[in-house]
Simulated assay, not measured.
Amino acid sequence: MAKRAKGIFRRTAGGLLVALLLVFWVGPVLAVAVYRFVPPPITFLMVQRAFEGKGFERRWVPLDDISPHLVRAVIAAEDARYCQHMGFDVEAIEKAMEANARGGKVRGGSTISQQTAKNVFLWPRRDWVRKGLEAYFTVLIEVGWGKRRIMEVYLNSIEWGPGIYGAEAAARKNFGVPAKKLTAAQSARLAAILPKPLSWRAAKPGPYVKRRSGSIRRNAGAVRSQGLAHCVLD
Score class of each variant (00 low, 15 high):
Met1His: 11
Lys3Ser: 13
Arg4His: 15
Ala5Leu: 11
Lys6Leu: 15
Lys6Ile: 15
Ile8Glu: 03
Gly14Arg: 01
Gly14Cys: 10
Leu16Gly: 13
Val23Gly: 04
Val23Pro: 01
Trp25His: 11
Leu30Pro: 12
Val32Ser: 12
Val34Ser: 01
Ala50Phe: 12
Glu52Met: 04
Lys54Gln: 14
Gly55Ile: 07
Arg59Gln: 09
Trp60Gly: 01
Val61Ser: 04
Val61Arg: 05
Leu63Cys: 06
Asp64Pro: 00
Asp65Leu: 07
Asp65Tyr: 05
Pro68Arg: 06
Leu70Ile: 04
Leu70Pro: 07
Val71Met: 14
Val74Ala: 05
Glu78Trp: 03
Asp79Thr: 10
Ala80Gln: 14
Arg81Tyr: 11
Arg81Val: 08
His85Lys: 09
Met86His: 13
Glu91Gly: 12
Ala92Asn: 03
Glu94Phe: 09
Lys95Thr: 02
Glu98Val: 12
Glu98Phe: 02
Asn100Thr: 12
Gly108Ile: 03
Gln114Arg: 08
Gln114Asp: 12
Asn119Tyr: 01
Trp123Val: 03
Trp123Tyr: 15
Arg126Glu: 12
Asp127Cys: 06
Trp128Cys: 00
Val129Asn: 01
Lys131Arg: 10
Lys131Phe: 07
Tyr136Trp: 15
Phe137Val: 10
Thr138Tyr: 08
Val139Arg: 11
Trp145Thr: 08
Lys147Thr: 05
Lys147Met: 07
Lys147Asp: 07
Arg149Tyr: 07
Met151Tyr: 07
Asn156Tyr: 08
Glu159Gln: 12
Trp160Gly: 13
Trp160Leu: 15
Gly161Phe: 05
Gly163Leu: 07
Ile164Glu: 00
Ala169Met: 15
Ala170Ile: 04
Gly176Glu: 08
Val177Met: 08
Lys181Tyr: 01
Leu182Cys: 05
Thr183Pro: 01
Thr183Glu: 09
Ala184Val: 03
Gln186Asn: 06
Gln186Arg: 09
Arg189Ala: 01
Leu194Ala: 10
Pro195Thr: 13
Ser199His: 09
Trp200Arg: 10
Ala202Glu: 01
Tyr208Lys: 11
Tyr208Asn: 02
Val209Gly: 02
Lys210Ile: 14
Lys210Tyr: 00
Lys210Val: 14
Ser213Thr: 13
Ser213Trp: 12
Ile216Trp: 04
Arg217Val: 04
Arg217His: 07
Arg218His: 02
Asn219Asp: 14
Gly221Phe: 08
Gly221His: 09
Leu228Ala: 13
Cys231Asn: 05
Val232Leu: 04
Leu233Pro: 02
